[in-house]
């Protein structure tokens, strides 16, 4: 069985040799992840579509600079991250952070959230989460999204961000602390 990195490298080599359809394999494989990443950083579906598409266009135009011995997605994610941050810096009008695509599952048991004596997060909603996320920095939103919405391990997050695992744990600690504080205490 061909692993994903090999399959990506092959698709990229074909693209560079003039087979434009080969890039469709890369797009199909990473559309969902690219869109999600842009979505939880930007907080708006249409902007996430536009910016993640920009990232694919940039990647396509810079494919000759990609080292095919390395995995594709961390390289692509760097392009996407820079575009998202540039977009947020340049966005002149204030845009509400509102992700409609959040799904909230019913809890499997009605127990714990309120069982802790110091609890404040009990019956939080999509609105509260959007509100809390909107007040985090884009860097905090990114690491929160990778951890919770993409279910990535510390190691995978470290690979994608190009930082040591210890740094990921430290950033995750503070990002989760900020999220928790905002969920608990509302707007500050």
């Amino acid at each position: 069985m061909v692993d994903m990195n090999t399959a990506d490298a092959e698709a990229i080599r074909l693209t560079l040799s003039g087979d434009k359809d080969a890039f469709a394999v890369i797009v199909a494989r990473y559309t969902e992840r690219a869109y999600r990443m842009a979505l939880y950083v930007l907080g708006n579906e249409q902007d996430a579509m536009d910016v993640s598409q920009d990232a694919f266009i940039r990647a396509y135009r810079n494919l000759n600079r990609f080292d095919t011995n390395r995995p594709f997605f961390p390289w692509f994610a760097t392009i996407l991250r820079n575009l998202c941050y540039n977009f947020l810096r340049r966005r002149k009008r204030k845009q509400a952070y509102n992700i409609e695509d959040f799904q909230i599952a019913e809890p499997s048991s009605p127990s714990s959230p309120s069982s802790e004596p110091c609890s404040g997060i009990a019956v939080e909603t999509k609105v509260a989460l959007n509100n809390a996320l909107s007040k985090l920095s884009p860097q905090d939103r990114e690491i929160i999204g990778k951890f919770y919405f993409e279910d990535l391990s510390y190691k995978k997050i470290a690979d994608e961000l190009g930082v040591p695992i210890g740094t990921v744990m430290s950033r995750l600690y503070y990002a989760r602390k900020h999220l928790k504080d905002r969920m608990l205490k509302g707007e500050r």
């Binding site: 959040f102 599952a105 809890p107 959230p113 404040g120 997060i121 999509k126 919405f149 999220l179």
Partner: peptide, 17 residues
């Protein structure tokens, strides 16, 4: 306790495909 509660909440929230 607060971190655990956050985890329980976040484990119920997913992004739609």
């Amino acid at each position: 306790g607060e971190f655990r509660n956050l985890e329980e909440l976040m484990s119920t929230i997913k992004l739609k495909d």
